[in-house]
């Protein structure tokens, strides 16, 4: 079977469900970077991200027959990746950040936006600022600004209500602005 770039994700999954390795290869090449970036945003550990990428793709291969088409393929695949990370954290005995209260009011003064805008354009400062966020905040900013996903899709991936995504994105941005403004002041 010719697995050219024209084939949709759904067509590739259909072929994979029939055991077509070429389709799996095409699918991997198309989505490897996306899954890896997402795992890195969540884990910030290249060793574990590489291992879990392999597990996600194996799950995609094994579950291809079960893809129901209720969500986009990328949403479904990132949902698998999210579950892999949660399982990994559970094994490591880490908390899953389920206690993150997205409705908490932030009482601290707002960041100096001019400073934050200046800092966000500096790759190193942004990287440091992102590292300072909790994994759920880092993850949600990645899904909004890198994956450019709708809040409904993000809610689907994370298995949380859409309202939770909205407030998490809002808080994540505010926290990042504060980190960046602080970094500018201390430089």
């Amino acid at each position: 079977m010719d697995t050219s770039v024209q084939e949709t994700d759904e067509q590739l999954l259909d072929a994979m469900a029939a055991g077509d390795m070429d389709a799996m290869t095409a699918f991997y090449r198309r989505h490897e970077t996306r899954v890896y970036r997402y795992l890195m945003a969540k884990l910030n550990d290249s060793f574990v991200a590489a291992d879990l990428l392999n597990e996600v793709m194996l799950d995609v291969w094994r579950s291809a027959t079960r893809f129901a088409g209720r969500a986009k393929v990328t949403t479904w695949m990132l949902g698998i990746a999210n579950n892999k990370v949660l399982t990994y954290w559970r094994k490591q005995g880490r908390r899953e950040f389920t206690e993150l209260d997205d409705n908490l009011t932030d009482e601290t003064p707002a960041a100096d936006l001019e400073q934050a805008v200046a800092a966000v354009q500096d790759g190193d400062r942004l990287r440091a600022g992102m590292q300072g966020l909790s994994p759920p905040h880092r993850e949600v900013l990645h899904l909004v600004f890198f994956e450019e996903l709708d809040y409904a899709d993000i809610a689907n991936i994370l298995q949380v209500p859409e309202g939770t995504v909205k407030s998490r994105v809002y808080h994540a941005k505010n926290l990042l602005k504060k980190q960046l403004a602080r970094a500018m002041r201390s430089s």
Binding site: M21, E32, Y36, G123, H142
Partner: peptide
């Protein structure tokens, strides 16, 4: 701010395992 954040995240380099990862996956399958 939002525009600059988006641009920086899009430009952030990533080095996934590439063909090595694919070979590992194919072996596992």
């Amino acid at each position: 701010f939002a525009m600059a954040l988006r641009q920086q995240l899009q430009d952030e380099p990533a080095t996934p395992p590439g063909e090595l990862g694919l070979a590992r996956l194919q072996r596992a399958i």
